[in-house]
Design a protein around this nucleic acid. Sequence first.
RNA 1: GGGCUGGUAGUCUAGUCUGGCUAUGACGCCGCCCUUACAAGGCGGAGGGCGCCGGUUCAAAUCCGGCCCGGCCCACCA
Length: 798
Amino acid sequence: MAEFKLKDKKWNKEWEIEIAEEWKSKKMYKFNKNTKKKVYSIDTPPPYVNAPVHAGHATVYTLMDMFARFRRLVGYEVLFPLGLDRNGLPIEIAAERRFNISPERYSREEFIKACEKLLEEYSMKSAETFFKLGISFNSWDVGTDIGEVYLTDMPEYRALTQATFIELWKKGLVYEEEYISNYCVELKTTVADSEIEHKEVEGYLNYIKFKVRESGEEIVIATTRPELLGACQMIIFNPNDDRYKHLEGKHAILPIYNREVPIKSHPYAKPEFGSGLVMMCSFGDYTDIRFFREQNLHPIILIDENGRMNEKSGPLQGLKVEEAREKIVEILDEKGLVVKREKVKHKIPICERTKTPIEFIPLKEFYLKQVEFKEEIRKISRNMKFFSEESRQILENWIDTISFDWPISRRRYYATEIPLWYCKNCNEVIVPEPGRYYVPWKEKPPVSKCPNCGSKEFKGEERVFDTWFDSSITPLFIGGYGRYNDFFKKKLDEKITLRPQGKEIIRTWLYYTLLRVYFITGKEAFDHVWIHYHVLDEKGNKMSKSLGNVIDPREIIEKYGAEPFRLWCAFEGNMHKGDFRLSFERVESAGKFLTKLWNVSRFVSAFDYVDKVDFLTETDKSVLVKHNNIIEEVYESYMKYEVHDAAVLLRDYLWDVFASHYIEMVKSRAYNNDGIYTKEEQKSALFTLHRILKDVLVMLHPIIPFITYKIMKDVYGENIIEMEFPQPIDVTSEIDFEDIMEINSKIWKYKKDRNISLRDELNKIKINKKFMPLGRDLKVMHKIKNIEYRDGKEVEIE
RNA sequence: GGGCUGGUAGUCUAGUCUGGCUAUGACGCCGCCCUUACAAGGCGGAGGGCGCCGGUUCAAAUCCGGCCCGGCCCACCA
């Protein structure tokens, strides 16, 4: 017996950073695009740069890292790039605050410079946490080669956004049209349906008196949006509402505005709500928009692009919408026209980002066709495998509800520009060739004179793209579409293997990506979609700053290291099936496994390494059969992204089978100090000890890469990153290792019950005769004087 | 209002599709033990009858019907 090859008594979390540095400096995970291996690729979600990585990110990236590391072990070349999202509103808002500037008061150029300055400051800060967690990204350097860190605002990325836009434009999939848009007053821009949330708010249902022109009678109308009174174009009641049938075809006079509008019956009016009479205005909500279209009514727009009432609103002009709502009630009340006000709760659409109520105003925007492709998207999405299958429903539900094309233009600044110019003379649209990054608002067009009229005066497009228009091409960018077309086509088959993402962005990131990529490649963007749930605090509440229950992953790494956190990620559950609850306590207890693994390895490391044997004892055969089963089950679990199942299997196997039973059973044989075993028998034990440890280390490596790397290196001098996932060993046994464990447990319990030390001798036990080949191991292990072998199943102890 | 989910000890969880041993495991709790890798360990114990009601069955967390509660998504109650 030699010395422990693991000198230290326990695992030290300080080693993690050294190891991470080593991996980084040796470029251990660099992607080789000329590889002969099959490629496994992951479309990692680019986190936004301006916030530190939160617990959710840390967890999700750690799980993705486990997927990546597993695939490397089973022979894939793994494409696992880090991307950073830097486009869009968050950076604009941060810049406005930091430098106290606004795009209205400063030039566009200066405003963008301010954004860039701030971005420089943020740089790669968020990557620091990923690095410490041991995430095996292909590269830590920003670049455009396959696998390098990409930024969504780098010229090459923006050029690809524009190039794909130009392709869509040429295919006739983009058009510009003035429609009623969802409009966020605060952002002063259109937002897509997918960016809208609904919020329940308290408001008033105002009952207002109108006069009927023909009869002079008073009618009462209930509304939550009285400020839109001036935009009313019709009053409706339910066809079955006997109270109002006599009004059909008559006209009502709008108070204040003194305009006549028709009264008609329409099934949309619910007799039981309010007074049963509804005023239809342009536009209080989606229903109104549909109704106006259906009835072919002419809309009157009262709200301007700043969210204020315009000149058509008469006495309300200049007021904000909410102010106008109060004001008009005051005016009506003075005239004695307000019957009553009821408090009501109702849901209103709000902007996902700013939480301000959405207004509906007509704007000219670019649209990408999607309504007519719903069925195709549904069809190709069925070629993808979802983990778990239940999340597919969220996508299908969303596709069901799409009723309008996607508005892709925005009136913002730090984003990808729409690459178009217009002839000032004849309005001809100038479309550049794809490939370069174009900035039309400050660059000259690619032509010197208009191909239509010959004019030399042009105007560059000032609008930019919706951020999702950028984000929805990540698989094309990381796959090298446009830059390495051969690789993208031949090696990737135009598809990325895995899209991992949160379920809350299924209707945006996933859906838009499928749509965009379908228009380019004609097929599904991914083979697998892994939809994850969320990380909550230990009581199951969402982490939020206001609740003060946010756990910063950096704190956890600082306190426990990356490995306990990674173990927690795996042990906590399968994230595609439910939420995770995070607490320091949970991480700490998950981390205990490291100590166990370290000690087991330390023990085994003391024995001479035997990597081949001609003879195996029955005990060893039995445990190796069990071992083969574990290899198979762990492999299957990893293949299904069920890292949790793999982790639990391995933990229980190492701890409760290998350490508690097998090691205890062969200790004496491995030492063989008294020479009661033959050399062959001893070698059989040494082989089995090393073989199981080595295989378990490899199987655990995706979950806990640092400690397994260190142990493999120190004990066996091998680089675990380059090893292969274990193969089953050619062995059979008549004895189920579970039965052996049962005998051991019975004997331990027997001694415990009688308060006998484990070292004390037992006179006699009776066991089934099939266990005869284990006799000596059992005798030595439990200090049994006599074993009687017989037919019965039970274990008897005397 | 619709859809999808889930409801098992103090907490989390397996089992439910394919009914059947005394309902799995973990954390925590309690008690005992330093057994030559490991007290960041080992051994043992207490604690639930599976959201509620009814049905099918020799037998139900498991199948059927209804209801209640939570989460997520969707939806035109002004």
